[in-house]
Design a protein around this nucleic acid. Structure first.
Lengths: 243, 243
DNA sequence: GTAATAGTGTCTATCAGACACTATGCC
DNA sequence: GGCATAGTGTCTGATAGACACTATTAC
């Protein structure tokens, strides 16, 4: 390995972000309208090239999160999603893009930046529809991100990244319902979540009465995984080959 | 995005492979002994730089699989594992490595190539131990690969990639036992696997009698996922933060 | 009081794990 | 027959989903 006499090719490395949140009862993703070519005017995931040779990939992701999506690192979950490096995916040359999955709590509104004509939360379902016309291969990246987050809700505690530092069980339930696109029984959800060891832990007494009885507050627990997993309601059995 | 006036930095892109198989009753990984600097003489994952600007990442992975691990694409499962791009991880400059996870059936013995002084199947447990002294950040990549394959055995049909085109239930069981490092009850495993829709389908009548009663042969079924999942025996609850 | 949401209890069909038992090969 | 592995049946405790019921707030 690494022994060939020729000089290996140099490529450009970009970082793209799939930033999710739950608004209302739907999963939303940050899209920007591209202000420059290529794909000027099309919708795209926020992202950009590595700033310099010394910048770490994760650091670049945090930087783009702030610059392009207007989100500070506070309380934003970031994890690597995958690499997209098909030749020809970017007309400017060989670009390998490292995609990151970001989960933001409900709160903030993203803001447009220098080269992004506009930035905003778009329903993921719409963003994946043909009507949205995403730039580059961003539709594929987004689809992978949606599948990742749906899957991780089953056996990890990722859902807590969608809510604030403290939250009620029904807030957590609305995350599952939005991401999975299903309705869940509140009573069974409550028991399930309570029974999963280390998923959520009590955080102070109840408050936040809106309509009915005030709900207890919880914080994310120490576990990263849920055992046994929370299974999403069974759709038709899938027939895909493994990728 | 993509709008800054400066020229973004060019980086080298490498592809590294975590190639697993099951031999005897243990998970093995292909390691080579590096024939050149840096890390000459150390053990490393097979891999190498992108050949040219037009080479697809997956194609490069298949090429390295053949060149460095001596495995042809026939029946080898390949999927992306992650990107490793920390500055300084390679002394030759900024190198971003795309790691691929490969699963090979039991059969072949890997062969050394040009720049690899030796290649061979090494027990994964030993390769992860401090005694093995892997080059670069390959220990971390390998650890991620092990965790990935352990996890995917639970809810995907990946285990069938470890065995030949046709296999017996007990062969499949030995894959689970080797990867998870546990013993499973053959009777319950049999029922579980049979009950998972689309996991395995009958392939011809029984044969292959070695000691006792000949076992039926099966092929991999159409499903990519197992519902309900095969849960690995519970160890102590994990306490990691999600990555 | 009514309305609305939070939280608990209970029932039932199903499932995971333990393990007895039968089946079918080799010697 | 003896031995070994393949495959089936059955029992039991736990669990998922359905849903009745109680608790606590706002009005």
């Amino acid at each position: 390995m690494y022994a060939d006499p020729w000089e290996p090719p140099q490529v450009l490395v970009a970082v793209d972000l799939v930033v999710f949140t739950v608004r209302g009862s739907h999963l939303h993703v940050v899209l920007i309208e591209r202000g420059i070519e290529p794909h000027r005017g099309a919708l795209a995931l926020p992202g950009g090239f590595l700033r310099d040779d010394a910048e770490d990939l994760l650091a670049a992701a945090y930087r783009e999160l702030a610059e392009e999506a207007g989100l500070t690192a506070r309380h934003v979950h970031l994890e690597q999603l995958g690499v997209y490096g098909t030749p020809g995916r970017d007309s400017r040359g060989r670009v390998v893009s490292v995609a990151y999955l970001a989960i933001a709590p409900r709160l903030p509104e993203p803001v447009a930046d220098t080269d992004a004509a506009a930035a905003g939360w778009v329903p993921a379902e719409y963003a994946l529809s043909p009507a949205a016309r995403l730039a580059f291969d961003h539709r594929e990246i987004l689809a992978d991100g949606v599948e990742r987050v749906r899957s991780k809700l089953e056996h990890s505690t990722l859902a807590t990244a969608f809510v604030g530092p403290t939250f009620t069980v029904s807030e957590l339930q609305s995350v599952y319902e939005a991401v999975w696109g299903v309705r869940l029984d509140p009573r069974n959800f409550y028991r399930k979540v309570q029974g999963a060891d280390g998923f959520i832990v009590p955080a102070g007494p109840a408050r936040r009465a809106t309509n009915g009885r005030p709900a207890r507050l919880f914080r994310a627990g120490p576990s990263a995984t849920i055992r046994p997993p929370l299974t999403r309601p069974t759709g038709p059995a899938d027939q895909e080959a493994h990728a």
